[in-house]
């Protein structure tokens, strides 16, 4: 997988736009509880951490799923849930180390980020640029640059 949702939580203000957009796109309702991406807020530390799927290389949710509903595409690296095959056992919710996989009780099936099929809407609507959908190499390069600048300034 060449592109991923890169999170710069220093920039996140916790506005919940991404959560609203995500639930609106996937569930036709603005409800952060049904959003794939979720922002963990630390008001006292003034920090906000958006958490979305890490698209692990060997995802625990894929190994744990008894019905084979969650699959990792070998080419694109996407990890997707097929709601048709999901039996609603919530093993993936317990297995995901990030608390990303979640469960919709009304529907009875699990849900997780599907990258909106290639153009993640949370990124489109993120106005602080805390979320970026960029190739891994570019994101890392920017980060390296920031660290370098930091060292230069302090030395």
């Amino acid at each position: 997988m060449d592109k991923l949702i890169f999170v710069d939580y220093q920039k996140c203000v916790g506005c919940a736009t991404c959560e609203m957009v995500c639930s609106l796109v996937h569930e036709d309702i603005c409800s952060p509880a049904l959003s794939r991406i979720r922002v963990v807020r630390y008001p006292t530390e003034a920090s906000n951490v958006p958490i979305t799927c890490a698209f692990c290389e060997s995802p625990p949710c894929v190994s744990v799923c008894p019905s084979g509903a969650i699959t990792k595409n070998a080419d694109s690296g996407d990890v997707l849930i097929n709601p048709v095959l999901c039996i609603g056992c919530r093993q993936c919710v317990q297995a995901c180390p990030f608390g990303h996989a979640n469960f919709n009780f009304a529907r009875g099936t699990a849900f997780k980020c599907d990258l909106c099929g290639g153009s993640p809407q949370c990124v489109e609507f993120c106005w602080t640029e805390a979320l970026q959908y960029v190739p891994l190499e570019r994101a890392l390069g920017e980060k390296r640059e920031a660290v370098g600048r930091n060292i230069l300034q302090s030395s």
């Binding site: 963990v40 951490v49 919710v93 608390g99």
Partner: peptide
Amino acid sequence: ADKKRREAA
């Protein structure tokens, strides 16, 4: 899931 997410964050 919320709890786990908090831990990860």
